[in-house]
Design a protein around this nucleic acid. Structure first.
Length: 164
DNA sequence: AACGGACACAACCGCCTTGCT
DNA sequence: GAGCAAGGCGGTTGTGTCCGT
């Protein structure tokens, strides 16, 4: 017995989104807001899973997205944040306005990993690949892990307040 | 021009967390 | 406190494009 599926798979589209589906989703969210994702597809007339709609909106259709190439500053920031937080892509994305967790995750796996390897740095541990001499570890020029944790809590509190 | 491998990115899957009853 | 539903997240896969041969 597995867990129940998040939606009725037999009647949902999969794969790339069409322009028409995008338009439907955008116009529905513009007039109704991001309500219940599970019921949204039906209400918007989409044959998609709610999760799929959410992902599409969050990652590609939101009006405040930056898109386009990452700057060197963003590169370095991502590396620093990753050394602090690990694979917490949503937290990292929270520090990069206009960027999404999925976008950063992809960018990390395709560009930054290789960049670090070229520098002789292990992308997982942020330590030099040839011998872990602690002074060579990627240095953090701002904040501490504890400080980051505090801010995470604060963000959580704010979003909770916002909902009330 | 054709082919195959590498690369980039959109999307899905399944687990975990959170909130409600 | 237990159980369930829904949302959120990270890992992974699928597919289109680019580039070298």
């Amino acid at each position: 017995m597995g867990r129940s599926p998040c939606c009725e798979k037999a009647h949902t589209n999969k794969g790339a989104w069409t322009k028409e589906e995008d338009d439907r989703l955008i116009s529905y969210i513009r007039s109704h807001g991001e309500g219940c994702w599970r019921s949204l597809p039906k209400a918007a007339g989409l044959l998609r899973c709610g999760k799929s709609c959410r992902l599409r909106w969050i990652n590609y259709l939101r009006p405040d997205l930056k898109r386009g190439n990452f700057t060197d500053e963003e590169d370095e920031l991502i590396i620093k944040l990753h050394s602090l937080l690990g694979n917490k892509w949503s937290l990292i994305a929270g520090r990069l306005p206009g960027r999404t967790d999925n976008e950063i995750k992809n960018y990390w796996n395709t560009h930054i990993r290789r960049k670090l390897l070229n520098r002789g740095i292990d992308p997982t541990t942020h330590r030099p690949i040839n011998g872990p001499s602690s002074h060579e570890v990627t240095t953090i020029s701002f904040g501490s892990a504890a400080h980051m944790k505090e801010e995470e809590e604060e963000t959580r509190r704010r979003s909770k307040d916002h909902k009330l």
